[in-house]
Amino acid sequence: MKLKIIAGIGLLLVILIVSCQSEEQLEFDRYYSAGSIVYQSRCQNCHGAKGEGLQALMPPLTDSAFLKANRALLSCSVKYGLNGKVSISKKIFEGQMPPNDLAPIEIANVLTYVTNSFGNKMGTITSQQVEIDLRKCR
């Protein structure tokens, strides 16, 4: 009898915890953790484990204002690379960022990771959004 009560309470607790994690949170977690793996293999060499960049050669990924202002362009930058000058963290960076042949879902994963790490907090960037943004790439 006692055992049943304890088991019942335990089950209730589990349900409570699971339901607290909203669908959105779960989606975010999925994107974020998959993104960290893409980041390690495709971005970390240049941008660093903490998104710190490399001196004046590689821009850091810690400029939240830049990321927010260029949110719709981020997908294009990842997919097709960057050329020319950009001003990030009050410094001018020039040169080339190589293109990355990634699927929209991978771009969404890695962007969700980057824009919610290193002091950034921009929420989930979904693969649907990435597909829309990619269509507008110049």
Binding site: N45, C46, L54
Partner: peptide
Amino acid sequence: TCPSICPIMQ
């Protein structure tokens, strides 16, 4: 202009 391992080496 090395895009791969050079940045981490540097």
